[in-house]
Design a protein around this nucleic acid. Structure first.
Lengths: 340, 340
DNA sequence: TTGTATGCGTTATCAC
DNA sequence: GTGATAACGCATACAA
């Protein structure tokens, strides 16, 4: 275990003071050309790297952004991360990713850990459990300590902070409209339980579209899925002997699962039943038939979130606080599952 | 921007010394019961959290593990991360994830950044570019500075460190054997260019299986895909008018893409052509027909990697260095694409 | 041109 | 029982 190279060590070796070394490395005009070159040569030789930890302590900022997401094994969230990284790297920020695994407790632990010195601000999408509990003290606390927070996708209306969302309702409405315009009249919806904000919003969009087209809503056309891991049986039961000509699913997994069940039932997509999903992931793209879907533009969400956060981090302290909500446009990606 | 609560602040408010506060919070017997309770109550009220940065500086360790992976938008890598997190959290370590985006430069930057104070050790899978360039100075440097490194999946033989891999060759051989045992004789392989270590190993496994079964290798049955993003055309050209009865693909994307092309050609899976892929991701699982695949047990890889790293981090300094290579068993998950 | 002193937040040591 | 001091690695205002 080799000794770490520090300013102190270089100073001792070269028999000058620490501050001389520090200044020389920054090419300060104060220091003679001669010393500067000597110090720099030595530093390079010994591969000196300033210690980030010490810098953070001194500057009281870490130059890193903390991201906390509900699930790391999830295509949408990883695309968001990609967007954040893009902007962060450009602006000289590091990115730390933590996953809450949809657990409230882990979200709290992660946030507190990162907040106590590891990151200057946060980009986060709250855990399912947090939405259910409606306990946001950890986020409020973080903000009250002066660390900006940007919420994305699964946001919390009650919190006053920057937010980046898509217009879930509109996306769902457009998707449903698309089905209606194909002539579908018996459109089922596969959605989540109500406390998942995005699920509820998408359901509302679906209802709105029906209303506009004057199609009466039927209670037996809606399935609110409780346990995502076990959606297959729920969807299967739901679709049994159901007379429908289209399905709108609020996520990719529900859409694909429904497609598989229909396939088993011998129904043809899109001729017997058309399908539109939500989230443009790899499943929709590679499934046969490929699935029409509402793209959430995850990378764009990440980019916008990172920009909002960095703006806050680098804002003048005396500029009055102002919080924005960025709404990203969704787009409908039409594929084979709605080609009639 | 509220003032951060520090020991100093508490000390001032309570009119005691900083060290008294520090000791009181740690329930030191030196401090009177009375003072202890007073301090603790105050700390709780003001929501005091020790500053990790200061602790890291003092203790010269960060209690965090750095993970660097080639791609964040990749199911396999995220499952590995999941495994690492599991162990890390248990043992009180934080996890920082960075993605190199398969770029050598970004890998170097990320590693150096994390190495200069943000993490105590690393778990990493090298970028494609790094494997191509064969330039590992950044990793060697990190290790020579006393920070342990565990390589997984895309490893580097020349580096002396802990490693966690699957037996890629054996996995491929088992997969090919499976096809052979179904009676397939004309088995094509979709693989990567040779400098990708795992691609080459899997190809070797395929060749070995053929040899054992005494099937002569045919040059026109192997496709080494250069540009993954554009594999569709390459595979499509390759499969055109090809007389084969099975395909072994070294990853999920190649397998699914081939399946889609065969579907277009009107060939039936598995009856006309059987398929086995590699990596147990969501695509293989949800595709119709579902694809037989070699599972890499990503989570297990993460768990083992984290354990190796933490063992090193917590080892006595005077214990002689010893490096292990853990080989995780693959398993063949049989699905519809090989059900004859 | 160079060096000294100070502080960032913490803990450990030692003195009172 | 309590407090002063030094140290972790760095940057910088101020002296020399």
């Amino acid at each position: 275990m080799k000794q770490k190279v520090t300013l102190k060590l270089i100073a001792k070796e070269l028999d000058v003071s620490i501050s001389t070394v520090s200044k020389a490395l920054k090419d300060s005009a104060e220091i003679s050309m001669d010393t500067r070159q000597k110090v720099k040569a030595f530093a390079k030789l010994y591969n000196y790297k300033p210690n980030n930890i010490a810098l953070s302590l001194k500057n009281r900022k870490t130059k890193t952004i903390g991201i906390i997401i509900p699930e790391i094994v999830h295509h949408f969230f990883t695309t968001v991360i990609g967007g954040v990284e893009k902007v962060a790297n450009e602006k000289g920020y590091n990115v730390i990713i933590c996953s809450s695994n949809n657990s409230f407790d882990k979200e709290v632990i992660n946030l507190e850990m990162l907040a106590s010195g590891s990151a200057d601000g946060f980009i986060l999408s709250v855990a399912k459990e947090t939405q259910q509990k409606r306990d946001y003290h950890h986020i409020e606390e973080t903000m009250s300590q002066g660390m900006p927070v940007v919420l994305f996708d699964r946001i919390i209306d009650e919190l006053v902070c920057d937010k980046v969302i898509i217009d879930d309702g509109k996306g769902a409405q457009v998707a449903t409209n698309h089905l209606l315009s194909l002539g579908c009249k018996k459109i089922a919806i596969l959605t989540t339980v109500d406390y998942i904000s995005v699920g509820k919003l998408r359901t509302n969009g679906y209802l709105r579209a029906l209303r506009v087209y004057d199609i009466p809503f039927r209670d037996d056309y809606i399935l609110k899925i409780e346990d995502v891991d076990n959606c297959e049986t729920e969807i299967s039961d739901f679709l049994e002997n159901k007379d429908i000509d289209a399905i709108f699913a609020v996520n990719e997994l529900f859409a694909v699962t429904a497609a598989k069940i229909l396939d088993k039932q011998g129904k043809k997509i899109p001729n017997d039943v058309a399908i539109v999903g939500f989230t443009d992931g790899i499943l929709s793209k590679h499934f046969i038939p490929s699935l029409t879907t509402v793209s959430q533009h995850g990378e764009e969400m990440g980019i916008r979130s990172a920009r909002l956060l960095i703006d806050k981090l680098e804002a003048d302290d005396n500029v009055p606080e102002e919080y924005k909500t960025v709404i990203i446009d969704t787009s409908l990606i039409q594929r084979e599952s709605t080609k009639k």
